[in-house]
Design a protein around this nucleic acid. Structure first.
Length: 586
DNA sequence: AAAAAAG
């Protein structure tokens, strides 16, 4: 605790919020839930409160949200009692790259607005929710501050007649600004900017916040030429990620899930009461599969007779009860909201996530970030890592790669990081053979449909990295087919040697004519969208597995494990198992 | 089709 306090002070400044007593509206000042400003806040507030444009670079988890909300709320408060304004006018527009981040920002704004007792309102508009409900709320209640994701905002502009409410916008905030300005969002941002009044006719302030500020951001951003650039990174520390202990592990792709499970079991055995890792996957489909695997393992464990459960190692016991959540774009928005809330308030839990939560989202107390498979970019690796070790707390990172993904370590954003290779050392009683066996059994309960979807997603994902991988399209298909069969245990059945793909889909992927693909005119009924998610009855398998071995894991040691030149032997029980790790610099 | 983001 003492150490935490010291680190906590590291991101706090010595300036108190009440030093702004002459500048800030007292109702705003009294709603600030902190005594001291963070470093970013202290460095940006004097500028942003003066009204100039600000481009700020700061570590994640250091109070950026409050840094841009304060000047926005203050600005609106000076416009009170709002006689000249229509109650439906939007004064501040905040854009976020994900729905979860938008909702989180709105929540912080609600806190800051308490003192105004409804005179200033904040609302959100994000996808995946009822369009009509939002439309009505935007009409009938104050939305002085609107927090939005781009797609849904444009939808409202074009279909709900929201445009007139934006004619008085006085401030525009881009959170995760680099993401908002990159190729994926730039067009949408242009559409939104076009709906705002020109800055000549209606002066406004732009506030851009991000942990990484790439070259050229100023060329595309909506920034005044007299803007202030604030960099709160100390040169010697650069970014959090320089200080967070980070390991990488290279395993064959058949062992990726087992290695991931090992890392989880290891952290559960060290600290079952406080462990709170996030597991990041590259596609929504593989996120879903690993989540199902964990759920299945838990159900299998709960079928183990309690007397036998006592004999298992503490890690397996802990796995049975730790809450597990999944969060990605293939879930409904209400499920996403529920998972976000539940993981936020859990002291110990496991979150399986896609890159939805890679940026900005603030889950308290995340103890480690485990990245499974190739991250989509060096920057994305850093943003994901930033979900732990926030606001001065401790945290660590693990990256699990296959040999063909090793090139990632040479990317320029990653090459300078303190990433150290860690080998899972195979000893007689280590966890990997058990984990492998458990994963294989659990995979039997995953439907061919789910496996096919993961296969298709992986093809699409790796296709964008062919150059880095040094693969031809045919090699890509070979590797992914092997992955489907050997790692996902996709059964080559009546449908052919690989999961089936529609000719149409293959065409869109640009893989027409590539050997090795199982191209079909029509998907078999089990893989069709209309079919249920799980034709296999998981319940049967639980029953089947409910007999436990005398000692060790409930999953036996059936699978032969070969990695780094050593096979896993039949050893003693899991009670004494540990993942042995050796550190060696890479 | 591949994170995400509109349905």
């Amino acid at each position: 605790m003492e150490g935490d306090d010291r680190r906590e002070k590291g991101h706090l400044s010595d300036r108190r919020f009440d030093s702004l007593g002459s500048v800030l509206d007292p109702r705003l000042l009294s709603s600030i839930p902190f005594e001291f400003m963070s470093v970013v806040q202290a460095a940006t507030l004097e500028h942003s409160l003066s009204g100039v444009d600000v481009l700020a670079q700061a570590k994640t988890g250091t109070g950026k949200t409050l840094a841009f909300l304060l000047p926005c709320v203050q600005r609106i408060s000076t416009m009170l009692p709002l006689v000249s304004r229509s109650p439906s006018d939007i004064s501040v527009l905040i854009l976020s790259p994900t729905r979860e981040l938008a909702l989180q920002i709105e929540k912080e704004a609600v806190v800051l607005l308490r003192g105004f007792q409804g005179a200033i309102g904040v609302q959100h508009c994000v996808g995946g929710t009822n369009m009509e409900t939002e439309k009505r709320a935007l009409r009938s209640s104050r939305a002085d501050i609107l927090v939005a994701t781009p797609g849904r905002l444009i939808d409202h502009l074009q279909n709900s007649g929201l445009a007139p409410q934006l004619r008085n916008v006085r401030a525009l905030v881009l959170d995760e600004a680099d993401r908002m300005l990159d190729m994926g969002f730039r067009r949408e941002l242009q559409t939104i900017l076009a709906a705002l009044p020109s800055r000549q006719e209606r002066p406004r302030q732009s506030l851009l916040f991000s942990a990484t500020i790439p070259q050229g951001i100023r060329d595309v951003a909506d920034l005044d030429e007299n803007h202030v650039f604030v960099n709160t990174l100390r040169p010697e520390e650069q970014n959090t990620h320089q200080h967070v202990p980070q390991d990488f592990i290279i395993v064959p792709h058949t062992q990726t899930f087992a290695a991931t499970l090992c890392i989880l079991l290891e952290s559960l055995s060290q600290d079952p009461k406080t462990t709170k890792p996030i597991l990041f996957f590259s596609t929504a489909r593989s996120t879903a599969i690993f989540f199902v695997l964990l759920e299945t393992l838990q159900k299998q464990l709960s079928g183990v007779h309690s007397a036998n459960l006592q004999r298992l190692s503490p890690a397996w016991q802990a796995l049975q009860t730790v809450p597990v959540f999944e969060l990605h774009s293939r879930k409904s928005q209400s499920q996403r909201v529920r998972a976000t809330q539940a993981f936020t308030k859990s002291q110990t839990a496991i979150l399986c996530s896609s890159d939805v939560t890679a940026r900005g989202v603030d889950f308290p107390g995340v103890t480690s970030v485990i990245q499974v498979g190739l991250p989509s970019s060096g920057e994305q690796y850093i943003h994901r890592l930033g979900r732990t070790a926030r606001a001065g707390a401790a945290g660590s990172g693990v990256l699990i790669l296959t040999p063909y993904e090793r090139f990632f370590l040479r990317k320029k954003e990653v090459a300078g990081l303190p990433l150290r290779e860690r080998k899972l050392v195979f000893t007689e009683d280590d966890l990997l053979p058990e984990a492998d066996s458990a994963i294989r059994k659990a995979l039997m309960t995953v439907s061919d449909k789910e496996k096919s979807q993961a296969y298709q997603a992986a093809l699409g994902y790796y296709k964008s990295s062919l150059k880095d991988l040094g693969w031809s399209p045919a090699q890509l298909v070979d590797e992914m087919n092997d992955w489907a069969r050997q790692a996902l245990l996709f059964q080559e059945g009546a449908s052919g040697p690989a999961p089936p793909l529609l000719a149409k889909t293959v065409g869109k992927m640009g893989l027409k004519g590539t050997p090795g693909l199982n191209v079909v005119k029509q998907l078999p009924s089990w893989a069709d969208d209309g079919a249920g998610d799980s034709p296999n009855d998981r319940g049967d398998v639980y029953q089947h597995l409910s007999t436990v071995r005398q000692r060790g894991s409930p999953y036996g040691r059936g699978a032969k494990v070969v990695a780094n030149g050593r096979g896993g032997g039949a050893g003693r029980g899991a009670r004494d198992s540990v993942v042995r790790a050796t550190q060696s610099s890479s």
